[in-house]
Nucleic acid binder design. Structure first.
Lengths: 135, 135
DNA sequence: CCAATACATGAATCACTGTTCATATATTAA
DNA sequence: TTAATATATGAACAGTGATTCATGTATTGG
């Protein structure tokens, strides 16, 4: 009974319950074992989603792709990605808040760069992973 | 002049232009070279952002984390992630649309699983990358 | 056939997020 | 100091997206 493709937790609810998984049968140890130990804690899923959400913006990605190659000041970034300087500044603030980039002030300019190598590595990994697949 | 930390494209606009990068000086070949070749094409950035956006949801991540270990039917998934069955169904539709999961019908049940190994590999990569860092 | 179960789906709602606009701060030049 | 440049930031607006509710479809049992 453990080599079947998969079984819904239960087929026939006995009580007035809505969910099918409420009576003891093959649930003893196997099929629900991996179900019982929470798959991905809600908090962790939350943090992962947040982080991914920060990457899930075309303009932020383009900004990061530039900073992955060189540091650059806000105005030039705005020109490079063809965005409003204000919009870029907002995005940079976001990226700064989550420690993806750091800044260095020089005169009237503020130069941004990737915070550390881990960010670069992760960015590269994402790019490479998403380069080949389907679309 | 090419070993300096970084230079804004231009310091003093001569025309009435708004952007600083509009006159020829050291722009000949070096500093704007990497700027000229678009860093990440808008379309590619768009697609990357879309894909990452699909991953950037706690509930979808938890669903994927379960399906990364075993296939499961909708009702059980709903129980496992403590969500409305309808909500799960909606999310699964999304995941199905972008080919992250596939489904198999068996009687009244529909079992979902990760579409292919690449999806699993990418999911794992993300999890691992986001496991150590800062937070 | 009829009822119940399992899932799907459309519409409405609510929250979030990115951009823009206006404005504020800081730095340099004159 | 005054003007101009470079960036930051708050508020408002618009678009997007996830959940819920109601309902529709398919499958099984009686």
């Amino acid at each position: 009974m453990s080599d079947l493709p998969a079984q819904p937790s239960s087929e026939m609810p006995k009580d007035g319950e809505d969910f099918c998984c409420d009576l003891p049968h093959d649930h003893s140890a196997d099929s629900t074992q991996r179900l019982q130990q929470p798959p991905l804690s809600s908090e962790k899923a939350q943090r992962m989603a947040e982080f991914l959400g920060f990457l899930a913006d075309p303009n932020r990605l383009r900004i990061l792709s530039i900073l992955a190659k060189q540091e650059m000041c806000v105005g030039d970034l705005a020109t490079a990605v063809d965005m409003n300087e204000s919009a870029v500044s907002h995005q940079l603030r976001t990226l700064r808040t989550i420690r993806l980039v750091s800044s260095r002030k020089q005169g009237r300019h503020v130069f941004y760069r990737l915070q550390d190598d881990h960010v670069f590595a992760f960015y590269q990994a994402v790019v490479e992973h998403l380069d080949e697949p389907d679309t």
